[in-house]
Amino acid sequence: MEPELRDYVGELLDSGTVAGVLALKDELGAVKPYLFTKNNEIGDLVLTSKYPLASVMSMLQKEDPSIKLAIVCRGCDERALIELAKRNQINLDNIVFVGIPCDEEMADKCNCLQPYPKEIVTGEKLSNWVPKNNYEDFKNMSTEEKLIFWKGQLEKCNKCYGCRNACPLCFCSDCELENALWVKHGRLPPEFPIYHVIRAFHLAGKCVGCGECENACPVGIPLMTLNHLLREDIKDLFGYMTGQDIEDENPINTKEEY
């Protein structure tokens, strides 16, 4: 998959279609986000890891709104870009999508609902993909058990804000998590459960299921459980899925009855 992809993006650069390609680069035994601007670097482009490239793209566009860039994106990256565009955080006209599908291992790791973007330039979409974990264990808990579960989990929180920082959809410059009216400053762990409820709620109708928040959590709080359940709820209540079409509005924000 990588050689074909390298040819494809090399062509985008050579032809002058884009000024750079945002993708992952193998360097010093690790993989990092990188903006490829020359064809001769493309040999280091890899697909072996996952980083929140959508937020990087948004940062690059803010730096230079006129620049046209390509992005090698997975399903979650594409969904995040679409959600960002809905909220005027990014200009899709200046982005060339270079879609790649996730393999089974990666899709499993993220328990992804949709491990591929709309169009792919290489590889194959997983067919008939259904995520294995349906969070049945959690759903079978009683209300009381759920509270005990979350209390135990959230007591570990050390307020790094990593879940927010790593989230491609958390773009507010003033974050309610830092508002002392809701969450007392400087206390560890933050009071149960407001910090995490605020974050979960703010992502309702926004979360694209990339799993970066859970990956970034130093103490292993299963944040995707909440996100996953809320995504199910949003689908159940409003029939809405995030990251599908830029024309779909987040139903929580619309004024229509449902």
């Binding site: 459960p193 709620f201 709820d233 139903p251």
Partner: peptide
């Protein structure tokens, strides 16, 4: 809509 979503979230939280 907000309250309906929040109710579900509350019940997930226990």
């Amino acid at each position: 809509k907000r309250i309906d979503v929040l109710k579900r979230l509350l019940s997930h939280m226990g």
